[in-house]
């Protein structure tokens, strides 16, 4: 039992362990406790008692809490073991709840930002790849046309027709025996990306049938293309080239660049 000196402090201990004393009273009690073993024993008993008040009937937390907590901890790290925090982390943080919310929001924000960035990069990569593939296809067509031109120039029966239309000049090479033809056009202006030069075969009824495309690129002063004819070239009386939307048109709709009659 406490002596008379301790009585006053003894009575304060229950309030002390509940954290219900004003600071000045608490300071006085702490000072007494530092030198009074009986009061320390009493304090220990009530401390244990107050810990019992921490236990209330368990309640299941929201199902999303575990994932949110894990996401907060991971902070975008790939997986595995987490870094150990500094050991001087304060026990009492006044605005801790909002910290958690912001941590969670920041983590989600970072994840969404990363996802959007990856998406944009993928789209850019795909667009670039598509562009490269288009260029490769055009180059292959150009090489094929050039090879055809070379072989045609070496063949004695090839007919050459001149192209003269404003700034555009060049040749139309026709091999009547093999029914193949190629265009070599100089100074063909480079078109906007949404337009193309389309070749037309003109038949006896003055109908136009698509004979392929010719692409002007800034890399060489000339452009060349092989003409694709569904029938023998003798069925046609000439060719023409117009500017059409990319992908071509079923019939000529745009400006005519030149026309050559056979």
């Amino acid at each position: 039992m406490p002596d008379e000196i301790c009585t006053r402090y003894f009575e304060d201990i229950p309030a002390y362990v509940l954290g219900a004393m004003d600071e000045a009273e608490s300071a006085a009690l702490r000072q007494h406790l530092s030198s009074c073993q009986s009061c320390q024993a009493e304090l220990q008993t009530y401390k244990t008692l107050s810990q019992g008040l921490l236990f209330v009937p368990p309640q299941k937390p929201p199902a999303s809490q575990r994932d949110a907590l894990r996401a907060s901890l991971m902070g975008g790290r790939p997986s595995g073991r987490l870094p150990v925090a500094p050991s001087n982390f304060p026990l009492s943080i006044p605005k801790s709840s909002s910290q958690s919310r912001w941590k969670s929001h920041l983590t989600w924000g970072a994840a969404i930002s990363a996802f959007i960035t990856l998406l944009i990069l993928n789209i850019m990569t795909f667009t670039t790849l598509q562009s490269i593939q288009d260029e490769q296809q055009a180059l292959r067509a150009q090489i094929a046309a050039n090879q055809t031109i070379i072989s045609m120039l070496a063949y004695p029966g090839v007919e050459r027709l001149a192209i003269n239309s404003g700034t555009v000049s060049g040749s139309l090479l026709i091999d009547w025996d093999r029914s193949i033809a190629t265009i070599i056009a100089w100074n063909l202006p480079v078109l906007p990306s949404d337009q193309t030069y389309q070749i037309w075969l003109i038949d006896e009824q003055d109908q136009r049938i698509s004979g392929g495309f010719i692409t002007a690129n800034g890399g060489t002063p000339y452009s060349s293309a092989a003409i694709i004819a569904p029938k023998e070239l003798s069925n046609y009386r000439g060719i023409g080239v117009t500017i059409e939307p990319v992908g071509g048109s079923p019939k000529p709709t745009g400006e005519r660049i030149f026309r050559i009659d056979f």
Binding site: P61, L73, F89, I93, S100
Partner: peptide
């Protein structure tokens, strides 16, 4: 919910 998350984060760090 927020306090529970904060508590476990403190446990992790301390």
């Amino acid at each position: 919910d927020e306090v529970t998350q904060d508590t476990f984060l403190k446990l992790w760090k301390r």
